[in-house]
Design a protein around this nucleic acid. Structure first.
Lengths: 341, 341
DNA sequence: CGTTAAAATCTAAACGTTTACATTGAAGAG
DNA sequence: CTCTTCAATGTAAACGTTTAGATTTTAACG
């Protein structure tokens, strides 16, 4: 196993200059058939493969985009990433992915790495929407798009889902089915999804003339365990709610687990709906009414936005905001069920 | 926004040579306190950030590893990747991830990209265990480790789970609970997990003197839909099985869905167990007995193996094989339940 | 055959680092 | 005062491409 063949080796082998080889490798045309054939043969013979690093060096582009999300183990993010990666690869871009674990420090570390590495673009679901962690990044004029959360300090394209609309529908559905004392398990209020979904909840109550009760609002952190805890809390209240809306997938899982453990029967004793569909939704008895969204689609749009910025860099072009409408999948958990005795 | 500052700009600003700057940036020592301070100041002033591309160019390493898996939307893989990424980032390596969608063509495309990009190592769950898709890759002496599937044509480190042991235990458990006509939904037999899990099934039958029935062996492709179809087929047989073992997570989901649709009551009419735990396992009534494994751990080990090869390249060092033992989580679906009438 | 235009090819600089080796200056030894 | 040593720093080549501009070849035409 000798050294790797370079473009110079190929040039020598084919008896031409490196420029000519470069032209055929890049399919730029302007090379005689015969010469091209000779070069192709040399490439084949020497197992030449073009060094993308050297190429990036002179072209000043890496054909790589960075993606930072809190946790790719969350099905929502893994699907979003999958959408991004798919769209990117079709456009011959690579995707570097890192988990921030919701840690701002980790996020900055990753950003610094990305900066050194020189990604052509960045997709981020930030751990902190109001922070300044992107200062250095912005200075270098690398396009950024925010997904699912906003970047309040910066003017960047953003791809969101209709958080407010989604939770509004889910809660309204509970109301229409006759539930009145509806609790919400909120997500962190300093995040867009957390806050907006709460607003949707409020709006639904208001539109139907239902008085909001402070004690029916409990706070989780978008993780499973907190969903579990919140249900425990609600169940043991003096006047438990007659329905619960959960603000995200992981908390819904925890919530449902708790209800099962408490034998708090969904549909019969308590109504339920939640944001983001989960695998278990269709398996439960009764099955669960959920807000569903096209996660892969979200990722695709994010890449499309990024792509545009990468192709036509123009910092003065105003930022765009894309909001993808979610849909409510009505199943049974939002209905008032009565047991046939 | 002017051009980015280079090491030369910093050198000029600080009134030293690029070599000295390089030395402080790389913390190599041998630089006078005072000089270092001046250089640090210049770096600060110019917002200098070292260009990793140029660095890679001369160091001939990219500090990047490539990961190819069939589908990161599958919770198993997303967890494995998460483990890899975590371990890699701790060691200051980046992780490039691509989905092959079980397509060999896609896989080769990705490999080619990785080759050009020059990853320092590769972790792969290959779409085709007997193919020659890595020929080009191997020529360049880049370390490779296979995860969850083997690379039959190549001598590479491999990280697997105890597929045979896992399914053996799961099936044995069914037997011990009194089931006799146990069907298996197999995965593709040209993959290690597919084949080995089948072998575990056979071994369990054999050890307990149970005669294997051809018709109880049905083939899926590790995807949800095939699990659904297989159950349909089994249910409508003249003599349906009294228990079913499913070879992977996605097929288990499909299987359970089908059983629900058919009203084929798990635990009462039919026993069930499956390889890889799934979220819904604990929510079902009865809940499901499953083989569970430490997926993040699998990823971590994969990186460790890769790391060793990257650090101490020695093609003659024999390949290693790590097999992580799974554990059976006994719940109710593997028991014979009787309804209290 | 000479001229010209177009096509094909070549030359060499540039990209931003790292690093082997060279140089400088100062301290210490004799 | 000269020689040696060592620490600090500098010089320049190398990494493997791309590409603008220069040069050569070919084809076309009269």
């Amino acid at each position: 196993m000798g050294k790797k063949a370079t473009i110079l080796d190929v040039a020598k082998e084919a008896g031409v200059s490196v420029a000519t080889v470069s032209r055929v490798v890049n399919k730029q045309g302007g090379v005689k058939q015969e010469t091209e054939a000779r070069i192709l043969a040399a490439i084949e013979k020497l197992d030449y493969v073009r060094n993308a690093i050297a190429r990036s060096m002179v072209r000043k582009e890496t054909k790589t985009i960075g993606v930072i999300i809190p946790d790719m183990t969350n099905p929502f993010f893994s699907k979003v990433i999958s959408g991004i990666e798919q769209a990117a690869l079709n456009d011959h871009y690579f995707t570097i992915i890192s988990n921030s674990h919701e840690s701002e420090a980790r996020e900055e570390e990753i950003l610094d790495h990305y900066l050194q590495r020189g990604v052509d673009g960045l997709v981020i679901t930030t751990a902190n929407e109001t922070g300044h962690q992107l200062d250095a990044f912005m200075k270098s004029n690398i396009p950024v798009v925010a997904v699912d959360r906003q970047l309040k300090q910066y003017e960047v394209d953003t791809v969101l889902s209709g958080n407010r609309e989604g939770s509004f529908e889910a809660v309204q559905h509970l109301i229409q089915e006759g539930f009145r004392r509806i609790a919400i398990i909120r997500g962190p209020q300093h995040t867009t999804p957390g806050l907006e979904r709460f607003k949707g909840y409020l709006k639904a109550l208001q539109m139907h003339g239902i008085h909001m009760e402070e004690e029916l609002i409990v706070d989780g952190d978008f993780m499973e365990e907190s969903g579990y805890q919140c249900i425990q809390r609600l169940y043991h209240m003096d006047h438990p709610p007659d329905a619960v809306f959960s603000s995200n997938n992981l908390m819904s899982i925890g919530a449902v687990k708790a209800m099962k453990d408490l034998n708090w029967e969904i549909g019969f004793e308590v109504g339920f709906s939640g944001f983001d569909d989960i695998e278990i939704a269709t398996f439960m008895e009764p099955n669960l009414t959920m807000v569903s969204r096209n996660m892969e689609g979200l990722g695709e749009v994010a890449f499309k936005y990024l792509q545009r910025r990468m192709r036509e860099p123009d910092p003065s072009r105003p930022k765009r905001e894309y909001i993808m409408a979610p849909s409510l999948i009505v199943r049974e958990s939002g209905r008032r069920l009565r047991r046939h005795v």
